[in-house]
C-alpha cells in the first residue's frame, strides 16, 4: 500500500512542469527515503534526478519499495486539474496497475480524484559518483533563466566559464556573439539574491543551450540555482526544494573534436 499526502501539492505540479518536456515516460520510485525519479531525455544527453524526501509529506506510507511507470505529459495534465493551494494525496495498491491522485481544496469543500494507468517502462538506472567539482556557482534562479533565454536568441550553444573574475555565459551565432559576466555578490539584502562562486580551478564547458533552457523550467521551485562544473564532466544544474528535496539536471558537455 502506498499513500503519500503532500500538503504543498503545488510542489509536485511544479516538478512535473519542469521535466515533462525533457522526459516522455519515467518510473517514479517510492521507498522509505522518499519519492524519487531518475530518467534520461530521449537523446541520452541529459539526465534528471529528483527527490521529495519522506519528511516533505504530512503522511508517508510506503509498505515496500515500488516503481511506478507514468507518462509525464499525461501526469502533468492530471496535476493541472489541482488548485494552487490543494493538498495532493497519491495512492496505489500493492500489485495494482494504477495510481490515484486525490486533490483536496484547503477548506475541504472540493475533493477530486483522478486515476492514471501505470505503464511498464524499461529504464536504465545510472550510478552517479560523488565528485568534487572544480567550480560551484550559486546564483538567483530567475537571473540564470533570464541569461539562458537571452542567449538563446543569439546562438545554440552556451559556454559557461568560471574564473576568479566571475562566471561568464557566452554564445555565438549567425548574427554575432554575446557574453554575460556575473560577479560574486554577497552584499545583498536577501540571501536568495546572492551570487556565490567557489572555485578550485578555472573551468570552461560548452553545452547545447536548448537543454539548459529546458532545465530553467524548474525556476519556480527555488529562488537559487547551483551550477557544479568540472572539466570533461556533465554540469549539474540543481534546484533545491527548501528542506524537502531537490531536482538535479545533468548535461553532457560538447567536446571539440
Amino acid at each position: 500500500m502506498l499513500e503519500l499526502r503532500l500538503v504543498q501539492g503545488s510542489l509536485l505540479k511544479k516538478l512535473l512542469e519542469a521535466i515533462k518536456d525533457l522526459v516522455t515516460d519515467a518510473n517514479f520510485d517510492c521507498s522509505a527515503t522518499g519519492f524519487s525519479l531518475q530518467a534520461m531525455d530521449s537523446s541520452h544527453v541529459a539526465l534528471v534526478s529528483l527527490l521529495l524526501r519522506s519528511e516533505a509529506f504530512e503522511h508517508y506510507r510506503c509498505d515496500r519499495n515500488i516503481s511506478m511507470g507514468l507518462n509525464l505529459s499525461n501526469m502533468a495534465k492530471v496535476l493541472r486539474c489541482s488548485g494552487p493551494d490543494d493538498i495532493i494525496t497519491l495512492k496505489a495498491d500493492d500489485g495494482g496497475d494504477s495510481l490515484t491522485f486525490m486533490f483536496e481544496s484547503p477548506n475541504q469543500d472540493k475533493i477530486a480524484d483522478f486515476e492514471m494507468k501505470l505503464m511498464d517502462i524499461d529504464s536504465e538506472h545510472l550510478g552517479i559518483p560523488d565528485t568534487e567539482y572544480q567550480a560551484i556557482v550559486r546564483m538567483p534562479s530567475a537571473e540564470f533563466a533570464r541569461i539562458c533565454k537571452d542567449l538563446s536568441g543569439i546562438g545554440d550553444t552556451i559556454a559557461i566559464s568560471v574564473t576568479k573574475e566571475g562566471v561568464k555565459f557566452s554564445t555565438r551565432g549567425d548574427i554575432g556573439s554575446a557574453n554575460i559576466v556575473c560577479r560574486q555578490n554577497t552584499s545583498v539584502d536577501k540571501p536568495e539574491d546572492a551570487t556565490i562562486i567557489e572555485m578550485e580551478e578555472p573551468v570552461t564547458l560548452t553545452f547545447a543551450l536548448r537543454y539548459i533552457n529546458s532545465f530553467t523550467k524548474a525556476t519556480p521551485l527555488s529562488n537559487q540555482v547551483t551550477l557544479s562544473l568540472s572539466s570533461d564532466l556533465p554540469v549539474v544544474v540543481e534546484y533545491k526544494i527548501a528542506e524537502m528535496g531537490y531536482i538535479r539536471f545533468y548535461l553532457a558537455p560538447k567536446i571539440d573534436e
Partner: peptide, 14 residues
C-alpha cells in the same frame, strides 16, 4: 566541430 557526448559516457549503469 563539436561532438555531443552522451550521459552514459560518464555514468555507469547500476
Amino acid at each position: 566541430a563539436c561532438l555531443q557526448k552522451k550521459i552514459m559516457d560518464y555514468f555507469n549503469s547500476e
